[in-house]
Design a binder for these strands. Sequence first.
DNA 1: ACCCCTGATACCCGTGGGGTATCAGGCGCT
DNA 2: AGCGCCTGATACCCCACGGGTATCAGGGGT
Lengths: 300, 300
Amino acid sequence: MDGLETRELRYFVAVAEELHFGRAAERLNMAQPPLSRAIQQLERRLGVLLLNRDRRGVSLTTAGEIMLVEARRALDAVDAAARRTRRAASAPSGLVLTTKAGASHELLKQLLDAYAARPGAVEIDVLLCEIGEQGQILRDGRADVAIMHTPFDVMTGLDSAEILTEGQVAIVPASHPLARRSSLTMAEVSDVPGLPIARWPRHDGTYPPGPGPEVHSQSQLAQLVALGRTLLVIPASSRAWQWPEHVAVPVLDAPLVTTLLAWPAGVRSPALAELVETARQLKERGIGDLVSVKNHKIAG
Amino acid sequence: MDGLETRELRYFVAVAEELHFGRAAERLNMAQPPLSRAIQQLERRLGVLLLNRDRRGVSLTTAGEIMLVEARRALDAVDAAARRTRRAASAPSGLVLTTKAGASHELLKQLLDAYAARPGAVEIDVLLCEIGEQGQILRDGRADVAIMHTPFDVMTGLDSAEILTEGQVAIVPASHPLARRSSLTMAEVSDVPGLPIARWPRHDGTYPPGPGPEVHSQSQLAQLVALGRTLLVIPASSRAWQWPEHVAVPVLDAPLVTTLLAWPAGVRSPALAELVETARQLKERGIGDLVSVKNHKIAG
DNA sequence: ACCCCTGATACCCGTGGGGTATCAGGCGCT
DNA sequence: AGCGCCTGATACCCCACGGGTATCAGGGGT
């Protein structure tokens, strides 16, 4: 009696996102009438009205909103099935690790080195991504495991293993007065005249209000930092780039950040288990030392 | 270039589970040839061999094993989309809670009462299930939230909020010598002559070795306990049924059990958030008191 | 040598998914 | 008001593909 097809889900998602049958059909490379029919059929089969066709435009019913998030999730799962299966065939038991471009250089290097030294180690490909993309990338199968940071990254739907908890540092131009301080507070850092903190887009694409520049990519941010146009507060181990003309000053009351290894909930491959175990050992051995040395070098 | 259909996934799962095209076709209510073709087409589209057709039978390739778990997961997600959408239309913003039949009676009652007393409370339907089924039920959308127990239940893929951590008690016939003890240890309890602990099937359907009776449902177990044929060790709050002729004796060194509220990772409906908040308050207010009183009553 | 059991191939048919042409209604513009 | 236009819905056609039956191919078991 049941059994939606992914085709129907794809069609619905397109219409729900465009809120316009014509544009949705165009995006799907098909004509509008069959799309209308397909959606009607989907609604009939579910016995549920998903879209309000009012005068001048389409809107989602409450059931439609539920369907949109569930359909996206289901389509992700289907894509992931195809991707992971293909990878299983082409690179047997290899892993793809994704991480924010530039973040956790040292940590990642240590992790990969330690893992590679293990007897049963498999190839690990690194896939660089933008901030906040890791969850999606894990869900749709482009990667098997990610390096993420709480409380910044949303961990829902993922299992994880902590690697390192640490404070944050402010990245300041060496010429700036704040650069001479040995430590700072959030209050001092959050409203520096001429050096505002950058604003990232929210999930809906809009930006929070504030004086800082709007950024949506890491490279953009790097640019702004290099130009001395924005102040950056990041985990001590996450210096993304080498800024010879900048110093890192600890921010005492910034929230603690935990770097962790995350993977799609429920996945349990032997290679992944080995990597997690490596991370656990790394944590016990204390990566903290190296990181603080590193910080010292930057700040000095 | 991509885009598997759920039909293909269903077919593959059937074949992968039966390891036999004929039986799989029968299960799918179709003939064998089109099934063979569909699987071939799936393999062509993926560019990956999923099944080894040796003489005398079919077996999964390593890629096929990956595909099997991923396909099951994807099909669950598709089912969940349909179920949740239908429910969103028929019972707007209601919740379905699932729990092991008979477990956590008191706790559940308190939770539901406390929640119902809230201003914005919605209808909560309770769906009773067997041990270990909760994860599946949440994943495929039959329920929105579950009461589960660590370390017994597998929590992968679920978010959760702890409600209560407690010790375990042994359920013993009142006439048995052990019933007069004020406390017990696992060693004393695990090998009582004439009162062996029941054995549950493992995930693959086989039973671990041991003297105890094989059970696969709660009602079966209830029967055996009532007959005085098996000894039961359960969380103090999880007395499933009223056994007037049995007593509950604390088992001091049994692993602590945490009762928690669990829901599919990433889901965030207002009603669910309210329920989780209710559970949090309940935990703070300390349900522990009531439970220990309860235990006292049983044991005495 | 035979049969039978396996999955694969050959071929046919009908459904249904997709196309084009057109309709229906609401809003804006003059 | 009348017209045009933009929306999604309907009508109708067509063929591609999913499914059926019949049959093949090969490998064991007796």
